[in-house]
Amino acid sequence: MSNFWFGEGLRKGRKTERFPHAPPEEPPLWPSVLEGSTDTFCPTDAIKDGKWDSGKCISCRLCMPEFRPTGKQDTFLIKKTEPALKKSFYLYKLDTGACGACNIELGTIFDPQYDANRLNIFITSSPRHADAIVVMGIQTEGMKEALKNAYEAMPEPKLIISLGTCAISGGILGDSPMSRDEYHIEIAGCPPSPYTILEAIAKARGE
C-alpha cells in the first residue's frame, strides 16, 4: 500500500504556489483591503472620518457600496521584525476565544497550496520552544491565565502576533485579549486569508 501512496505523491506533482514570491493565485474579496472615502455605517466603527481600519473590520459588507473590496491581501501591520528567526520560525498558537475560522486558516498555511514549511515556518506545541505566540479570538476569563503563562514561558526574542479582528480589537464579539500596542504584528481579517497570514508571518522575520 505504501507504494500506492508513494505513486500518488509523485502523480500529483508539486502543488505549492509561488506566493509570497508571486501574486496570490486566487485571492478572496472578503477579506481584502477595502477602498472608499465616504463615511458610512459600520457595526464595529472600522470606518471613521472616511478612513478604514483593517484591525476592526469583520468583512460584514454593510459598508457597501461606499467601501469596496479590492482583493489585495496585505491586511497586516508589522511593527517589529526578528531577522534572527529567518532560519526557523516556530509559532505557538493560542486560542483565547476564537470562533474556529481563524484556527482553520492558520492551519491552512501548512496545506500544499501554501506550504509554510518551505519558508521554515513551523508550529510548536510548547511556548518554551516558540519564537512567536499567535493569539486568536477575544478575551475570555478562562484563557487569561493560559495566555499569561505562555507569554512568560517563551524565550527572548519573542514576537506577539494577533491573528484576526477579535484578537486585534475585539471585533463584534467582545474585547481583545491584549492591547493593540502590545502586539508586534497585526494580521487583520475575519478571518484573515491564508495568503495574508503567510505573507505577514514571513515578513515578521524581516524578509
Binding site: 505557538y92 498558537k93 493560542l94 486560542d95 483565547t96 476564537a98 474556529g100 484556527n103 482553520i104 492551519g107 508550529i123 510548536t124 506545541s125 510548547s126 484563557m143 493560559a146 505562555a150
Partner: peptide, 8 residues
C-alpha cells in the same frame, strides 16, 4: 492550550 488541539 496545546498544539495537539485546534481549539482550547
Amino acid at each position: 492550550s496545546t498544539g495537539g488541539l485546534v481549539e482550547s
